[in-house]
Structure formats: structure tokens, C-alpha cells
Amino acid sequence: MTTSGSIIRVQNLHKWFGELHVLKGIDLEVKAGEKVCIMGPSGSGKSTLLRCLNFLEEPSKGIVFLDDLPVGYIEDADGKRRRDTESNINRMRARMGVVFQSFNLWTHMTASANIVEAPIHVNGLSRQAANEKALSLLRLVGLEDKKDAYPAQLSGGQQQRIAIARALAMDPEIMLFDEPTSALDPELVGEVLAVMSELARGGMTMIVVTHDMGFASAVADRIVFMDHGQVVEEGPPSTFFQQPKNERTIQFLAKMTSRPF
């Protein structure tokens, strides 16, 4: 049904925070089923880009398309854009799953309540159907026994796996991961990456902001390297890691591989 064949299309995206020019004209296309890893030094704008994709940040200029539909803005006849209605924005957001660096599980709800919350109240799923779905998702992330636990009773890795299940419960067309393992203790990273790899094998379209080179080279179809608010280089992992062309990419990779962990 898509004319361009891409599920996400980013056109000349700019973002200013006051004086600070964080994104300087990003163009990006992601096809259905594709796994894209966004890498780059901190402050390069990769998290902001991800947040712009589902309008958690409002782009200052440029536009994001989901299935060729603009996210957050509609264009007038004279080409001037204005903010879309709240309900349209929310409808677009519900089609994308987001996993945050700091998990952001709702602290006042149990694990299963976190998972069924949006399916029931946004998609109008019956409680019974939502519960069944939650159970199968909990099984998928290996945390069936934690369904009645509150977030504060879970380890970081467990919380992040619940957060992934929560995002999947909305049957998203694409999953966005914002540094999903950066806030985790090293020994907990593996369990989260395992769930993500499983998801990738299942054919989910994924955009992952990550520092994890192992995960990126194993799972990504394409690596997008950002620096200073621009896409500097992109390509399949093999070329990206073995034959980087851009000077800044080379420097970044050298720094990453010399890290002690």
C-alpha cells in the first residue's frame, strides 16, 4: 500500500532547542522489516531524532512520514504546515512502539498492568483479551512469573524486558529503541539484547539507537552514523565496521574499540 516502499521516511528534519541546533537536516528511509541501528557520539542528536519520529519532540522543520502519512503535522493547501489534531497524533504514536533508555515503566502499576494499560484504554481491547496477550508477551520476554511485580521490585534488565513487552502489546508496525541497554549494569545487558534479537528474527521493523557494536553488527541491516546533528555515513555493518570512509566515523570506531569494556 505504500508508494515509496518505506515505512518511515524522514525529510530534511531540523530541531532547535532554543539556540542549540541539534538536528541539522536529517534524511532517512526505513523499509518494512528493516533493522537500522543509529550510532554516534553522545550529543550527536540520535536520541532527539528517535523522539522526533513519534512526535515526542516536535520537529522544528522538516517532516516524518509513517507509511507516507505525515506525523504530527498536516499541510494546508498553500503548503503551510500546522499541528495535526491530538487524536490523529495519538493514533500515529500508537502505531510505533518506543522503548526508553530509562525504561519508564509506570511505577504505580504491576508489570502486567503496565502491559495491558494502553491496549485497553487506547485500542479498546477487552480486559480479558489484553490479559491473554500480556501473558503471551510475558512468556516471550521470559518474565511470566513477574506479572504481579511492581517495577521497583524488578531489576533493570527485567524492567526493560517488561517495557519491550508493553510496547509490543500495541501491535506496533515499527519498534523504536532509545539506547535500551545504556542504563543497565553490564551483566544485565545480555538478557535485553537477547529479547531484541529474538524480535528481529521475527521480522519486526526496528530502529535502534545504541552504543552496542556487537548487537549492531549481528542484527542490523544498516548502520546510520550521526555526528553533530547530521548523518555522516551509512551502510551495512560489514562495510561500516570494516571499511569506514568518513574521518569522524573512523575516529568514533577507534574510540569505541579501545574502550575497556
Binding site: 513519534n54 515526542l56 491530538e86 487524536s87 495519538n90 493514533r91 500515529m92 504514536r93 500508537a94 502505531r95 510505533m96 512502539g97 518506543v98 526508553f100 530509562s102 525504561f103 519508564n104 515503566l105 509506570w106 511505577t107 494499560e117 494502553a118 484504554h121 487506547v122 517495557a163 508493553r166 510496547a167 500495541m170
Partner: peptide, 19 residues
Amino acid sequence: GQVDAARAAGMSYPLTMRR
């Protein structure tokens, strides 16, 4: 982050506030 997660799941403003 709590609000971010709700908004990302497509929850409306009143729903985010209430729930």
C-alpha cells in the same frame, strides 16, 4: 519519562493525566 511512555503509547492528554 512516565508521561513520555504514555504519550508514546498513543495515550491522549486526559487519559495520561487520569491513568
